[in-house]
């Protein structure tokens, strides 16, 4: 099963290679990995998408926690969460094809951010599945180049990952927090799927 892990790690040279090295040394999967400093410049936040059985993902989480540079991590799949990925696609846009691509971009709520006589660059944001769906929808012969950022993810409701607070929701959540969580869980058609 696909899991999204959010990891806070020390913003040191080499911290990234410790994580990457762990995955290759132990033959774990990485589907995507993004990392950047947070509001606290000593801390980087990494979002790592992996897949495997529950046992494997449990082992991945434990091994990551064991790395000295890893401050904290959560498996976003443990609760409701939002994921986003940014994609830029350069497509051939000629003659009649120009209109068709434009229509598709509108349907997917993307934007065309660069236009030449023969090409468009399309910017699209969303869950990875949505980006996959766009690529499937566009005639493959038109696609010149695709670049994706990999997934960024965040938990919904009061569950938050930062250096100062516990990783799980507080043991006795406030009333407001409880109802926010309920709302998050109960959302029938969460906006993040679009």
């Amino acid at each position: 099963m696909r899991h999204i892990l959010s990891i806070l790690l020390e913003n040191h040279a080499g911290a990234l290679s410790r994580v990457a090295g762990l995955f290759s040394a132990r033959a774990f999967n990485i589907e995507s990995l993004t990392v950047a400093p947070t509001e606290d410049p000593t801390v980087s936040r990494m979002t790592l998408v992996t897949s495997g059985s529950d046992e494997i993902v449990e082992q991945i989480v434990k091994q990551l926690n064991k790395l000295i540079d890893v401050i904290k991590l959560i498996d976003l799949n443990d609760g409701p969460h939002i994921e986003r990925e940014l994609m830029l696609v350069k497509v051939l846009a000629r003659d009649g094809g120009r209109e068709e691509v434009k229509r598709l971009v509108d349907i997917f709520r993307g934007r065309i951010i660069d236009v030449t006589d023969t090409t468009y660059i399309v910017e699209l944001t969303g869950a990875s599945r949505k980006l996959d769906a766009f690529i499937e929808a566009v005639n493959g012969e038109l696609i010149m180049e695709v670049v994706r950022t990999g997934v960024s993810g965040i938990a919904r409701g009061t569950r938050a990952l930062n250096v100062g607070t516990p990783t799980a929701a507080p043991r006795t959540p406030t009333k407001a927090a409880k109802s926010a969580d309920r709302a998050a869980r109960g959302a029938a058609n969460p906006a993040h799927l679009l």
Binding site: E55, E58, Q59, K62, Q63, N65, K66
Partner: peptide
């Protein structure tokens, strides 16, 4: 003492 040793090979 190492959580990653637990249930690594044997549940």
């Amino acid at each position: 003492v190492d959580p990653s040793s637990i249930s690594k090979n044997v549940p």
